[in-house]
């Protein structure tokens, strides 16, 4: 992660996020495999190993890998069931896909010299827009124009309702922005701070502090990596709940 040469202290906290074509060349076409593509592929491999290979025994008394796979399954399943209700379980595979992708990308990005896929707003933004559009479409398909009742707060006094509706509409459209920036920003900031600490490790006087700082930040980032995946998923489920049950 650290890009350090000799005495001159040059800190490039953002250089780690640069995308490079995997097989040489300068230009990145829409199909060019990049370092990001590689780490997405590794994330897919991780999901495959955990959930497909891990569960291949189908044992009633599970192996270790199968236990972890079952815990992951139960974690997301329970989340969908508790928040979105029984009819939300139809969308459980979609939610599970998002959770597994984000959690694996977050965790893999903490391997030194790896690439932080989920620190890119193109990724988190696409995920957030995907959720936004699918939730909106599900809402209109399920409830027709009744879905607009989501913005019409019947609990409030009648004169207030148009203003509340305006606020609700704005907040609805801001959702994908906050949804994506929360995840991307957290990942980007954490990795940038790690990089900065790492750069200071080159100065002998500060290096012990720097190393301690990296260790502490790394622990925090492990937490953040999981918590942000959890938050991204739970918000997805909350939006899904709004689409399935728009009347609060």
């Amino acid at each position: 992660m650290a890009a350090e040469q000799g005495s001159s202290l040059a800190i490039h906290p953002m250089a780690q996020f640069a995308m490079k074509p995997l097989f040489g060349g300068d230009t990145i076409h829409w199909y060019t495999p990049t370092n990001q593509t590689l780490w997405m592929a590794i994330a897919i491999l991780g999901v495959f190993l955990l959930l497909v290979v891990g569960s291949r025994g189908r044992a009633v008394i599970p192996s270790r890998a199968q236990s972890v796979a079952e815990v992951a399954y139960g974690f997301v399943y329970k989340m969908v069931e508790d928040i979105a209700g029984k009819d939300g379980l139809k969308f459980f595979p979609y939610v599970m896909t998002i959770f597994m992708f984000v959690v694996f990308a977050n965790m893999l990005s903490l391997i030194p010299a790896s690439f932080a896929t989920t620190s890119h707003f193109a990724i988190t933004g696409t995920l957030a827009l995907l959720v936004f559009f699918s939730v909106t479409i599900i809402g209109f398909v399920r409830h027709g124009l009744g879905f607009l009742g989501l913005f019409w707060v019947t609990a409030a006094p009648l004169p207030l309702r148009p203003f509340l509706a305006l606020i609700e509409v704005i907040s609805y459209f801001v959702r994908p922005v906050s949804h994506s920036i929360r995840l991307g920003g957290n990942m980007m900031a954490g990795h940038a701070v790690l990089e900065v600490f790492a750069a200071f490790a080159a100065i002998a006087l500060i290096s012990p502090l720097s190393v301690i700082g990296i260790a502490a930040m790394y622990a925090l980032e492990l937490l953040v990596a999981f918590v942000q995946a959890y938050v991204f998923t739970i918000l997805t489920v909350v939006y899904l709940k709004d689409a399935l049950h728009p009347h609060h």
Binding site: P33, A43, T97, A122
Partner: peptide, 24 residues
Amino acid sequence: NQIFWLAVALVIIYLMLSRIALPR
């Protein structure tokens, strides 16, 4: 580029989960 490969990754994970892992 990012969006394309993300879409590929999501489709692969979704198929993996919905066809094999989750039912199992």
